[in-house]
Amino acid sequence: DTVERITGPRTVSAFKEKGVLSISEFVIAGDNLVSKCPTWSWESGEPSKRKSYLPHDKQYLITRNVPCLRRAASVEEEYEAAGGELLLDNEDNDGWLATHGKPKETKYDEENLPTMETLEISKKKTIQSISSYFGGEEEEDIPDMAEYEESDNVIEADPATLQSTYLVAHEPDDDNILRTRTYDVSITYDKYYQTPRVWLTGYDESRMLLQPELVMEDVSQDHARKTVTIEDHPHLPGKHASVHPCRHGAVMKKIIDVLMSRGVEPEVDKYLFLFLKFVASVIPTIEYDYTMDFDLGSTSH
């Protein structure tokens, strides 16, 4: 098939021994992710950055417009303040094990999440837009802005246009602010570490590009200091935040060992589901799909 043709003879799998993936195994695991979680797709990226060792239409995986309702940093503070233990990480980078089997949402109290209802209620109070780094044109650039607004009232007069979607409720003394950022999460193949690598591109409430530094607010604070860095994306233009892959193989090896100790024989096409579950401990509030409502492997007993 295509994969075989491009990568030549299949290499011996180091998946179980080292937690790493060959190029063809990455494509197999990616195909499985796309078929089980269709919000993910393969893309080809910038033609000039194309890697010859990957199929041209399967250069990297991406899921776009993923909601991120709260900053990871504030979720961790609240969790600690409520007397909870922080399960996210420890020195061995295997803190994910402590959360194994729990959906990531349960790490914080869902009832504290702003919902559409709370937004509706707070609309009656002060309404202002949350400022963002990138925004409208500077006032001085448009001396005639007031004129603009008055002269263009067609849409305001249109009764069929819903007016309120751009407004964000804001209560100065209440932390219950809807801070709905969105993320494009992409997965590339890192040839040196032979593992997948995750990249984050963030957008603010009005879908303007977030500075990569602000993306750090959505990374678990241990990782923000240690393993998440801002680098050139291998297939897209610009600087993006990325989870450095140097420990991925070791962490994946531990996950695989735990599964095998429970009598589950891990299958290589499930690699990305396990990987994304581990990544969820690094970016706990970015709600990408990695549902696993099927067996991780064949159970041997």
Binding site: S129, F134, G135, G136, E137, E138, D141, I142, M145, Y148, E149, D152, N153, V154, I155, D158, T161, Y166, L167, S206, M208, L209
Partner: peptide, 18 residues
Amino acid sequence: NVVGWERNKGRNVPRCIS
């Protein structure tokens, strides 16, 4: 008749990104 210019945070102004 036609409507549809996108609003920028509720206002009829263009956007700018640096």
